[in-house]
Every structure is written in structure tokens, then in C-alpha cells.
């Protein structure tokens, strides 16, 4: 049995962890994800999505599940490892004051788990004040320092000054981490589930005698739906120059009834036949925040779709 990949979602209270998790669980990525949370009341999942509730577990109609940690984190992990079938991915919401490095040790130590990444959610409006809090500052700095991916929420309502300050703080605390603007928790599931944080790095890690910002800010775009893609139009789109686009990938049904997977990384692109997945067709893109315009990609995407 291959180990279950684990993603940790850290961040202080109110940063938006639960919104991110709500999106992840409601999304039609087709994966059987298990999300381990402190309290599932807070995630406020759509009632239609909940298939069954028993004690500390919510089973969702899309195959995902949500478990509460209860009073013993390791007990909860043990329960999940005993599940049959095992989930395809484990996402752990850590408490707002947890040290993700410590929590992540179990995924490094346990052969049935593998640590995929640490995602830290930061709220652009309140992060500055939290950092200044004597009870919290050190803990939060520490969280950021372990992040592979930082999700910035509430950037749309944060004052310009606060955003600028936040960028500088993040560049200093986690120069290697990728930053992704994720207002309202909107972030492509793939960003959380794949070791994308590594892939997004612009260069390979090297000796550090100096201080500079390797991270960059990204913006995500995601599609899921029943539309069929026109093969020629899709080919054209994945080769087209799209400003700031870093990565585009997906799994889509074509107008001829077959399915294909495609991806583009930088200038490389590829499309090939694929077996039909369980869920709907979907696509995800990530681009540099200052140049990539998700709305522009959306209209280009809409143009290649034919109704099912």
C-alpha cells in the first residue's frame, strides 16, 4: 500500500483555514480526501453534500470525509490509517497555535504517511496585529517559517499599506515559500494536494549565505463542470501566450466523447488521452499575481467549451 500524502493547513484563528477546507471538500476534484479538523461545525458544509454523520465522522457525497480530531490527535490518525479503503489524501487542519513542524513529524516518521506540504493561511487584514501579540508572535512567525505555500486571504479588503507590509514580512520570514492570493478561501484543490509548492519554485534551493525573496505571489484559477472541450481549440489554448501563466493542467471530456489530460508548465505543453475520472471535467491554472489575469483565462476557456 502506498503511503497517504499529508497536507497540513496551519494559520491563526480567523485567517480562513475553514473556508479553504470548505472549498476543498465541496470541490469536484474526484479524490477521496479525508480532512481532519478541530470542529466540523465551523466548516459549515452544505447540507446537500453530507451523506452520513456518525460520531466524529462526516461522509460526503463526493467520496470525501471529514473527521474531528477529538481529544487525541494520534488516536485520530490511527483511526484514519485503519479505514478501508484508505483515503487518497489526508489534510490536517492544525490549531492556530500549533507548530506545523512538530505536527508534521508524524507524517515524516510514519511509513504509511508521507508529508506533502505545509500550507499556512494568512489573513492580510489582521496578520500584522497578531504578529505583534506577545502571546502569539513567536508562534505565528514559526508557522510561516515552516510553510511551503502561504495563502493570503482578505487581500481584497486589506489596506494597501497592510498588504505591502505583509509582503515584506512574508519575504523575510519565509523567503522560499510560494505565496498565493486566495481571497474567500478560493484556491485550486491541486495547489493544496500536490507538492506544487516545490514545483512552483523558480530555482533550485542553493547555499544560503544571503537573504533574498525566492517566493513569489501567485493567483489561481479553477474550472469544474460538464462542458466538453473542442480538441483543436484546447490545443490552441494550452499553447497560446497567456501573460504570467505559470502552470495549467486538467482532465477534460472532449467533443468526441473521449477524455484527455493536459498540462502546461512554462512553455512546455502536452495533451494525451486519459481514462474517464469519477468526477466532472476540471482544470486548474496558477500564474504570477501581478501579471496573470484569471478573468482573461476564464473567457478564453469558455470559448473552447461546447455544451454537453
Amino acid at each position: 500500500m502506498s503511503p497517504i500524502p499529508v497536507t497540513l493547513i496551519a494559520g491563526y484563528l480567523g485567517a480562513g483555514k475553514t473556508t479553504v477546507l470548505n472549498h476543498l471538500l465541496s470541490d469536484s476534484h474526484g479524490l477521496r480526501i479525508c480532512v481532519l479538523v478541530n470542529d466540523f461545525g465551523e466548516i459549515a458544509l452544505d447540507a446537500d453534500l453530507i451523506e452520513n454523520r456518525s460520531g466524529d465522522t462526516l461522509a460526503l457525497s463526493n467520496g470525501c470525509m471529514c473527521c474531528t480530531i477529538g481529544d487525541d490527535f494520534y488516536d485520530a490518525i490511527d483511526r484514519i490509517l485503519r479505514l478501508d479503503p484508505r483515503p487518497e489524501h489526508l489534510v490536517i487542519e492544525t490549531s492556530g497555535v500549533a507548530d506545523p513542524f512538530k505536527v508534521g513529524q508524524v507524517a515524516l516518521a510514519e511509513p504509511d504517511l508521507t508529508l506533502q506540504g505545509v500550507v499556512v493561511v494568512v489573513d492580510a487584514v489582521n496578520f500584522g496585529a497578531s504578529l505583534a501579540d506577545a502571546f502569539l508572535g513567536e508562534t505565528l512567525r514559526n508557522q510561516i517559517a515552516t510553510a511551503g505555500l502561504v495563502l493570503v486571504t482578505k487581500s481584497d479588503i486589506a489596506p494597501q499599506g497592510a498588504l505591502k507590509q505583509l509582503r515584506a514580512t512574508l519575504a523575510e520570514l519565509a523567503p522560499e515559500a510560494v505565496r498565493l492570493v486566495a481571497d474567500y478561501g478560493r484556491v485550486p484543490a491541486e495547489m493544496l494536494l500536490e507538492p506544487l509548492a516545490l514545483r512552483l519554485r523558480r530555482d533550485e534551493p542553493h547555499a544560503h549565505g544571503h537573504h533574498h525573496d525566492h517566493g513569489a505571489e501567485y493567483r489561481g484559477w479553477v474550472y469544474s463542470g460538464d462542458g466538453l472541450a473542442d480538441p483543436a481549440a484546447l490545443d490552441a489554448l494550452i499553447k497560446a501566450p497567456i501573460p504570467g501563466l505559470y502552470r495549467l493542467k486538467g482532465l477534460m471530456p472532449l467533443t468526441d466523447g473521449s477524455w484527455c489530460s493536459f498540462h502546461r508548465a512554462g512553455v512546455q505543453s502536452d495533451r494525451r488521452p486519459a481514462p474517464p475520472p469519477k468526477g466532472q471535467g476540471r482544470a486548474v491554472a496558477v500564474g504570477l499575481a501581478d501579471r496573470f489575469d484569471p478573468a482573461q483565462l476564464q473567457s478564453a476557456w469558455d470559448a473552447i467549451l461546447r455544451n454537453a
Binding site: D72, F73, Y74, D75, I77, D78, L81, K102, V103, G104, Q105, V106, L108, A109, E110, P111
Partner: peptide, 18 residues
């Protein structure tokens, strides 16, 4: 040291401290 590292052994040795 600490549960993260002890857990894999405890599971396999059925050490149910609880």
C-alpha cells in the same frame, strides 16, 4: 522522542495507552 516519532512503533506494537 515525542509522539510523532513514537507513534509508528506504538501502532505496530499495539500499545494502546488510552
Amino acid at each position: 522522542q515525542e509522539m510523532g516519532a513514537m507513534f509508528p512503533v506504538m501502532r505496530r506494537l499495539n500499545m494502546a495507552i488510552r
